[in-house]
């Protein structure tokens, strides 16, 4: 275990670079207790984050729980469905949308602290090992799969992220790991997501394939959002980061591992169903 203090600041202004913000804690608490995240200081920001949905579903506070969004009549169908199909009731009642976007991969090698590429090592153990829940895009140098359902929905909905320092398209919150930087997000130390803004679509949907009918991470999740003639697609569970799909034909460019080839077929089927649903 590694964390020395928990502080409860009066405002979000004074977060220093080493502060590790804690909101719902559903991912962070197990990671800190397992020693996978080092946190000199945990900063309890739960009661400081904006919470709730602005009318029209255009602005969402980062402290809004997945349970809030699941029940909201204000948010687009794709986001509401993605929240409803995510995790378990307890986790949805605890977990915030801001934290959900930043959750770590479910890759068992990473979670068991193998010295893998994402942990700074020189190889991806999943590539030669067990990887049926892993990626089909960007499988090198790390074949992990991003587990967030809402992230795919928000990517298709063109969400813009407001942090304590800047505004950026959701796609720019994420990055693939590189030799000199193994992180999967572009968030700086002490930078906090405050709010999400999205464009109201004409129609949207989120479809999810999982091992169980409930309480399971996505094997493949597909979000589709139609704006007039244009339909945007984004996928969960298929790459180390949420994955925007330019067109259904882009699935032909997937580079699955032997154990994830089946995900391409599932993605193709769900993309077809999603496009039909928003037509």
């Amino acid at each position: 275990m590694s964390a020395r203090t928990l502080s409860r600041p009066a405002s979000l202004e004074a977060l220093d670079e080493t502060a590790v913000p804690l909101a719902g804690g559903t991912d962070l608490v197990p990671l800190v207790r397992d020693g996978l995240v080092e946190a000199e200081t945990l900063v309890d920001v739960r009661s400081l984050l904006p919470r709730g949905v602005e009318p029209g579903g255009i602005g969402i506070g980062a402290g809004t729980t997945l349970a809030d969004l699941e029940r909201s009549g204000e948010v687009p169908d794709a986001l509401r469905e993605a929240c409803r199909l995510a995790a378990s009731p307890q986790l949805r009642a605890m977990g915030t949308i801001g934290g959900n976007l930043l959750q770590a991969t479910r890759c068992w090698y990473w979670r068991l602290a193998f010295p893998c590429y994402l942990h700074g090592g020189d190889r991806c153990h999943a590539r030669e090992g067990e990887h049926r829940e892993h990626a089909i895009f960007a499988v090198e140098p790390c074949a992990s799969a991003h587990p967030s359902d809402p992230a795919a929905a928000l990517l298709a909905l063109g969400a813009v992220v407001e942090t304590t320092r800047r505004r950026l398209p959701l796609a720019e919150l994420y990055r693939l790991p590189t030799e000199d930087d193994r992180r999967l997000t572009t968030l700086a130390g002490g930078e906090l997501i405050l709010r999400l803004r999205l464009e109201e679509p004409d129609a949207s949907v989120y479809l999810k394939a999982m091992d169980r009918q409930r309480w399971s991470f996505p094997l493949v999740g597909v979000a589709a959002a139609r704006y007039g003639e244009e339909t945007r697609l984004a996928l969960a569970g298929v790459a180390p980061i949420p994955w925007a799909l330019g067109s259904p034909a882009d699935l032909d460019a997937a580079t699955p591992l032997p154990g994830t080839a089946y995900k391409v077929d599932i993605a193709r089927a769900l993309v077809g169903r999603a496009l039909a649903a928003v037509r």
């Binding site: 804690g25 197990p30 009731p89």
Partner: peptide
């Protein structure tokens, strides 16, 4: 009143 998991809820939070 909302269901929560006590095993991953920190006392201080």
């Amino acid at each position: 009143g909302a269901p929560a998991l006590a095993c991953i809820t920190l006392l201080e939070a």
